[in-house]
Structures are given as structure tokens and as C-alpha cells.
């Protein structure tokens, strides 16, 4: 596996406001992610998976360790790592089209004409052409998340970071967007780190699932989903149900054990 993203010996500790109590969120943790891979971070609530993803995105600073992208040491956020948040982050003062176009605003590698074309491309990809002139508070939550995904893709990041992007959506919209993301991933081949609590979502979308322990986060298990159920079968709905359910059961058992361990500790 080529090391497109290298996470090396990352640690993170949070301190209480009075500075007296420390909470270790991440113990020395290392992993590598290949180019084009979709990796799901899965684990009990509050285990530190979002913190790790935010560190990769440069939105939080680690205490120790380093993050490298194509071998280059990263510090702070930039356009190479685009983020889609759980809460709706599309800008209400811009229309759907202008929100997506905003993704190209700080790109100096393309012309104005290309920015328009890229906007059209992603509006089309997320199926929002009809809603281009709508402000985002007049469209549904699912559409807003599609805007956020399209805006991030329009900025052409090397890595897509998704923090429970479908967490606030109803089941049907969620499923629709999961399939849409699979299509996007197939066509864009974008390296993606996706944080979720939803085991089925993880199995459906991932090339690889990384299961974290309860806080402080360490990797409990890595599952190469592609080796068990092909991405094609998952996309087409022809996956072996028994294999799917077995994997789901194994993951849930691991997470439940970690959750119980966390309860004992607290």
C-alpha cells in the first residue's frame, strides 16, 4: 500500500478549563491511508475518531506526532483537505449554485470559465441543477448536505474528510446520499476519511474500516471490506447477505465491548 496519508505517533490530550484534569483522547497512534481509499472511522461515542480526523484536516493540533500527505508534513488547514461537517455548513446568504461555486473561489489553478464549468459539473453530479437559484434554507437537509459535498469537491481537495455527514438525516435521505457518495467515489476516486457511528453505513461505503477503542483512541481492528464483499456487489445490492450480517455482527460486538469498557472506567 502506498502511504498517501501517513499518520505517525499522534497523541492528543484535552484539559479541563481549570487545567487540573486531563483527558487523554488519543494515545500514540499511527496508520497509513492509500490514495483513492475510502476509510471509515468507527468506534464508541467520544472515542476520539472525530478528533483524529480534525487533526488530519488541520482543524485541531496534535500534542505529538505528525501528519504527512504525499510525504509532505502538514500543519494547519488548507485546500488539500476538504471537510464536510455533520451540521449544515452551506452558506445561507448564497444560492445553491453560488455555494457550490464558492468551492472554486480560492483556486488559482483554473480560469473563471473553468470555475463555472466545475460548478455546473458538481451541481449536476449531486442532482441539484433545478435548485441552483434556491437559497439553502429553502431546501431540505439532505440537499444541503449535497451542496456541502459538491462545494468541497469543487475545491478539488486531495483528501475528503467527512464527519458524520449524514448523521442528522432521515433514513431514506441517508440511504439516497450513501448511494450518491458511492457513485461520486467511483467517478472521482477521492481519498476519503469518513467518521460514522453507523455500522451498516461503514460496511456499505468503506474500502477499509478502522475500529477504535473507547477513549483514549487506539486501533482495535482494521477490516478490509473489499476483501470480503466487493464494492461492486455493495453498490449493486448483490452482496452476500450472510457475509454482510456476519461482518456487521463482529463489528457491533467489538464496539459494544469497547462501550462497556468505557462505562466501567467512568
Amino acid at each position: 500500500m502506498d502511504n498517501f496519508i501517513e499518520i505517525s505517533d499522534i497523541t492528543k490530550t484535552y484539559w479541563s478549563d481549570d487545567g487540573k484534569t486531563e483527558t487523554k483522547v488519543i494515545l500514540p497512534l499511527s496508520m497509513a491511508i492509500a490514495e483513492g481509499e475510502m476509510v471509515m472511522f468507527l468506534g464508541p461515542s467520544g472515542c476520539g475518531k472525530t478528533t483524529l480526523m480534525r487533526i488530519v484536516g488541520g482543524l485541531e493540533t496534535q500534542d505529538q506526532g505528525s501528519i504527512r500527505l504525499r510525504g509532505e508534513l502538514l500543519a494547519g488547514p488548507d485546500r488539500r483537505r476538504g471537510m464536510v461537517f455533520q451540521s449544515y455548513s452551506s452558506f445561507p446568504w448564497l444560492t445553491v449554485r453560488n455555494n457550490i461555486k464558492f468551492g472554486t473561489r480560492y483556486r488559482t489553478d483554473i480560469s473563471r470559465q473553468e470555475k463555472e464549468e466545475i460548478t455546473d459539473h458538481y451541481m449536476n453530479m449531486v442532482g441539484l441543477v433545478r435548485y441552483g437559484d434556491f437559497y439553502t434554507n429553502r431546501i431540505s437537509g439532505g440537499m444541503r448536505q449535497r451542496v456541502a459535498i459538491a462545494r468541497t469537491l469543487a475545491s478539488s481537495p486531495d483528501v475528503l474528510l467527512m464527519d458524520e455527514p449524514f448523521g442528522a438525516l432521515d433514513a431514506q435521505t441517508r440511504e439516497h446520499l450513501q448511494f450518491q457518495l458511492m457513485d461520486i467515489n467511483k467517478s472521482e476516486k477521492k481519498t476519503t476519511i469518513f467518521v460514522t457511528h453507523d455500522v451498516e453505513e461503514a460496511i456499505l461505503l468503506a474500502n477499509r474500516i478502522i475500529i477504535f477503542s473507547s477513549r483514549p483512541a487506539r486501533v482495535v481492528k482494521e477490516i478490509d471490506v473489499d476483501a470480503v464483499i466487493s464494492a461492486e456487489d455493495r453498490r449493486n445490492g448483490t452482496a452476500d447477505v450472510a457475509a454482510f450480517m456476519t461482518m456487521r455482527g463482529d463489528i457491533l460486538t467489538l464496539i459494544r465491548a469497547e462501550y462497556a469498557h468505557n462505562l466501567e472506567e467512568t
Binding site: 488541520g58 482543524l59 461537517f85 473561489r105 468541497t152
Partner: peptide, 28 residues
Amino acid sequence: PVEYIESGHTLGATNGQIMRHIIIPAAL
């Protein structure tokens, strides 16, 4: 919302651009 500002950072905006293009329109 902090997500607006963080979105700006990850879309490649500088602090000044975030102030002009995100914070001011959002707070206006």
C-alpha cells in the same frame, strides 16, 4: 457558526478572506 469558518479554511481561504467572504456576510 464555527463550521462556516472551518469550511472557509478547508476551502483555501486566508483569514482576511474568511473575514470578508464568510464572517461579515454571516453576521450582517
